[in-house]
Amino acid sequence: MNQLLAALDWLLDPARYSGPGGIPMRLAEHLGYTALGVVLAAVVAIPLGLLVGHTGRGRGLAVAASGAARALPTLGLVTLFALLVGIGLLAPTLAFVILAIPSLLAGAYSACEAVDPRTVDAARAQGMTEMQVLTRVELPLGMPLVITGIRAATLQVISTAMLAAYVGNGGLGRFIFLGLKTQDYPQMLAGSLLVIALALVLDGALLLVQALTRPRGAVPAG
């Protein structure tokens, strides 16, 4: 318990809230990494997932890829890329994108699949093109599932971004690894509490977005 109090002391020290290496800067770095990873992965995975879900082609492959990616150890990817491409932001970004893609892909294809096929047929019967079916029917109805994928990917990248500090980058992981190196447990604890709080707040925010995008009058899809 003394350790916890020491960690709170560490967190409440005003000196930690200014300058380079302060909590606000590390927090901003962490958020930046997370946004970078999720956005880059989403640009690739969401259109691909929608294509798979809409056409039904390549579904087996997408499911297998999502499953296999779950077996990949995040720390392994982060350290491997750090050795291969060197210290810097590129290595962890590659790991973020690879680890975020499976959840986004799964969210996107299950969004299309969750839509009642009769609804899709009705849309076609009304003369909608395939693109219109996708963007005006399947996507709005399946949006909560797409957001589920984004939530999962965000959590994944937040925790991986912590490991980015291990290979020489910033972010909240810095406090943890600095504490580890100097045997400063309160600092590790404080860093951990910050990351946990960040993860819970972002998850809660995305949950709210998910509730807001749930189509009115439709059977909830997720």
């Binding site: 499953g67 959840s103 299950s110 994928g149 999962a152 990917a153 959590l155 994944q156």
Partner: peptide, 9 residues
């Protein structure tokens, strides 16, 4: 898969 690939990494 969408649900299970989440957090906990």
């Amino acid at each position: 898969a969408a649900a299970a690939a989440g957090g906990a990494a």
